[in-house]
Design a protein around this nucleic acid. Structure first.
Lengths: 184, 184
DNA sequence: CTTATTCTGTAGTGAATGCTACAGGAAGAG
DNA sequence: CTCTTCCTGTAGCATTCACTACAGAATAAG
């Protein structure tokens, strides 16, 4: 589904790929939409679990880089499947399926909270670091997702390893700019 | 198609929405894939035309901001349809359709060149501004696309107007960092 | 006018779509 | 063993899918 989209993936294909008989699929799930929502939930939980895990291991200042490196480790030539799934379902089903929208919202909220903490670490020394981190977390996530997508579409144009450090640098500059346009 | 994906949009629906009879669709296009490729091409041409237009109007230093503002003007609550189309086709058909991949590549190349010039303007005063602008253009595009997508999914989390200025600030910080980690 | 070209309406192809009905097997509980 | 709950296999539903064949209308060219 992450590779062919929601409409492009038939129940028969899901059945074959999973080994679960088609009739069983409709025992466990009410509909194809319901299945997609469940799959999306699993995918987002995995995202969150990954971030939580890193959170325990890395000191606040290094945490943003650690997040990025961990996400990176999940990427070969392909976007991690669950990021692909998230985007494709958001674009394809979001406008038509409220359950999907709600799941996306929940995932975004927890992701934002986790990233805000990491960002606060990267904003060390700036006034109001916590508030700025909260404000900028959604921007940071959007940027990172865009860059990962860009990397999948054209791996040569973007150096993900470098971006791992540079995201923090760019965001810090933006935060400094917000706190007052003057440099020390 | 931008709203329901490639597989989610039937020929009949296209026919009804466009007024063009289904049989005529197959007179003008060889297949649904062919149609999608043509539609994508139109969409990307419109992107490029938009950038070219701005290029003539804005001085180099202001050009990045002007690009962003112009793209922004295209957005209401929805991502501009052609950006949505680009992403959805890239994710859904990219892995399976070489013609789509080629079109995406061409669009990216021209987009990168145009943006590199605008970025060079924003990097004024930095050594090697031109080279850095070329290097960072794909990153800038990816960031901007990610942010626009993020805005569509959750309009409250991201302030697009602010991002218009802040993208340049963040990228400039990254460029400065690349040219040598020291600040004056 | 005639002729040639471009497009459309009608009808229908086989295959695949999401989903249901339901009988019966598998497995655990007592 | 029986009984109950959980799952699966078979068959089939109506609908939609991308696509084709083709006769003839519309349009343009001479």
């Amino acid at each position: 589904m992450a590779e062919r989209g929601f409409a492009g993936t038939g129940i028969a294909a899901i059945s074959k790929a999973s080994g679960l008989p088609a009739s069983s699929i409709y025992w466990f799930f009410d509909s194809k939409d319901d299945l997609a929502a469940a799959v999306l939930e699993r995918a987002m939980d995995r995202w969150v679990a990954m971030l939580e895990e890193v959170k325990g291991d890395a000191a606040p200042q290094k945490r943003l880089g650690a997040f990025m490196r961990r996400a990176l480790a999940e990427i070969g030539d392909r976007l991690p499947l669950f990021l692909r799934l998230e985007m494709i379902l958001a674009l394809e089903r979001g406008p038509h399926d409220a359950a999907i929208r709600e799941r996306l919202q929940r995932g975004r909220d927890t992701g934002r909270d986790l990233l805000a903490q990491a960002l606060a670490g990267a904003f060390e020394g700036i006034d109001d670091a916590d508030r700025l981190a909260k404000e900028l977390a959604p921007l940071a996530i959007a940027m990172a997702q865009g860059v990962m997508l860009g990397h999948e579409l054209d791996p040569d144009g973007i150096d993900l390893d470098r971006f791992t450090e540079e995201l923090a640098i760019g965001l810090r500059a933006i935060a400094e700019h917000r706190v007052g346009g003057k440099d020390p």
